[in-house]
Design a protein around this nucleic acid. Sequence first.
RNA 1: GACCCCAUCGUCUAGAGGCCUAGGACGUCACCCUUUCACGGUGAAGACACGGGUUCGAAUCCCGUUGGGGUCGCCA
Length: 441
Amino acid sequence: MTDVSVRFAPSPTGRLHVGNARAALLNWLFARKHGGSFLLRLDDTDAARSTSEFAQGIEADLRWLGLGWDRFARQSERFDFYTAATGKLKQSGRLYPCYETPEELELRRKIQLSRKRPPVYDRAALKLTDADRAKLEAEGRRPHWRFRLDHGVTAWDDLIHGRVEIDMASLSDPVLVRSDGYPLYTLSSVVDDGDLGITHVIRGEDHVTNTAAQIQLFAALDYAVPVFGHFSWLLDAEGAGLSKRIGSLSLADLREQGYEPMALNSLLARLGSADPVEPQLDVQALVAGFDLGRFSRAPARLDPHELDLLNARILHASDFNTVRDRLPAGATEAFWLAIRGNIGRLVEAADWWPVVSGEIATVIEDPAVVAAAAETLPAEPWDGATWKAWTQAISARTGAKGKALFHPLRLALTGRDKGPEMAPLLPLIGRDRVAKRLSGV
RNA sequence: GACCCCAUCGUCUAGAGGCCUAGGACGUCACCCUUUCACGGUGAAGACACGGGUUCGAAUCCCGUUGGGGUCGCCA
């Protein structure tokens, strides 16, 4: 039994979005669950679209999520491996040169489609003679190279889908090398997975047909064929295709909006599975209950509202130490404990900080209650019991109770009609501020 | 258009012929707590897409319909 080795292989042509995060997380959890290693591989063979800024951004996104990697590779440094692989395939006759232009291929596909035929490559290039090829090359055409698939059925036991069988005759022979010599995903991915000893490929459902072709490629290159698992796609709240709203939201956006990474992780690790979504404060805590086999084959909807709720619950349970760096300067643990149960995003803490430490606009709703409050204001020191004693005194003097008592007080002291429990908040505000606010200044 | 996947409460799902008067989680609603709101606690309502079969018996098996998703690139 070889050690489990998985990878997350984004291409640095943009920042990570929610869909990517799920792929990364699922692989990471699988690795941790099985004591294996997690490889971050940058699929940056497309030099025109890949940038180092995006590459750094992706690494930052993963670190934000708390998903560290054990191994790192970038495809742009591995061209020699791809060249060696194409040499091997040419030798065994599995790779053949084709001379159609992209426009010609596009036209053929349209014709096939209009005839209600599947748009599969007809292997015309296989019938080319040496003389034909020489003539085409003389015209200045450079070949692209296709992998000759073995027709028949290719099958595998998928971690999520179970037994999958693909009729290879319904697939086009995949292009492995572009006419400019660059290797394409199908090739580089297989070479790297094989060479780097990836044992389990866990990726989105959009890759299932790729997988059939890649299995043949693994075999043709004498690599061990990894185990595959294809998770279903995420849909937005309306059930429409994913990559529209939150699915295409970048992690950088979510971070900027003040979401907790563990809210996202908690949701993504369980959504679409048979297990309940529960707020967890640490990625490690997600490992124990993780089981790919409990994921459904049906696409799941991701409701942004659910993320909000989870975010709030995470915050309500978060210790001061985990958030102190992102709290307003000077914020104390007592302050955090007083307000954490009342916020949905951490940024809201900044709204409460002036309430206990600075100036706010007060609202005098009931002058009689406020006046009584000012008159009965106890001397410091204050503690958690001060509020109750004080409000009892105010109630005794004015006859106000319940909402009629608390609403005006809350408004006068905090400027708002809802918020954290007043008992712990009062000592934090302090007598001077309270007196000032009660005077309506 | 062809092929593949999917179809249970609002949402994520359990269910692999009788254990299902269909279970859980989130949300919703109600109540409790707090002499306010929120937080928290307890409880309730809430679903087998439709039509045919097979069977003593179907949410579970088969066929069809409808609906959703995916793939069919010199993208990844």
